[in-house]
Amino acid sequence: MNTLPTVAFMRRLLRRQLLLALRSPVDVANPLIFFGMVIVLFPIGLGPDPVILARFAPGILWIVALLSSLLTSDALFRSDFDDGSLEQLLLSPQPLYLSVLSYVLAHWLITGLLLALMAPLFAIMLGLAVQAIAPLVASLALGTAVLSLVGCIGASLTVSLRRGGMLIALLVLPLYVPVLIFGSAAVQAAVDGFSVLPYLAILAAMLSLGIALAPFAIAAGLRIGIDA
């Protein structure tokens, strides 16, 4: 009986998710287009004055990144739930606690990391101070990983519900608050010339707490969802 070693199985799941994402590039591009479009709304809403925009840039960039990550978390398990793959995953001998981590990692690579890499473009558009761009990318990269973990909890709890999309926002946004606080504070500190490391350290601490605890909730949510 040659069941797969767990790490190999996680790698297989990750490859599968990334291959599926590559096969439908529109789904990958959606959050980026959404990110760009919403960024454009702010100058229209707040007026083109660069001073105002620059002052709000850290907050705007982080809030929009957060919403883009939230937007995509509904689809995390939904397609697998609809075609029965999720049932197979739950029946696989490997621990579900680790298998869901590859889903989270795939979601982060597809949305979080791409958002972080695209953010400098929008930061310049909003006139963010140049020295704050690198910290912005770093804080977004770290922060969106935590957002993916928490979004995955929301996705697993609403996987069996027909209209889960809006519901995820209500479940998950309160849990996004600490990430947003320290994420935007990191960029603000960079703008003001302070060191960014303490904020990134706190984001990293949240990430490690999330990696340790979130899979329990995600696995439980999936088992409940499958059985609903």
Binding site: T3, L4, R12, R15, R16, D80, L86, L89, S92, S99
Partner: peptide, 12 residues
């Protein structure tokens, strides 16, 4: 690909 990357967790 479906069978090679199957989430069923059996051996490769």
């Amino acid at each position: 690909e479906n069978l090679r990357l199957h989430p069923g967790g059996e051996g490769d």
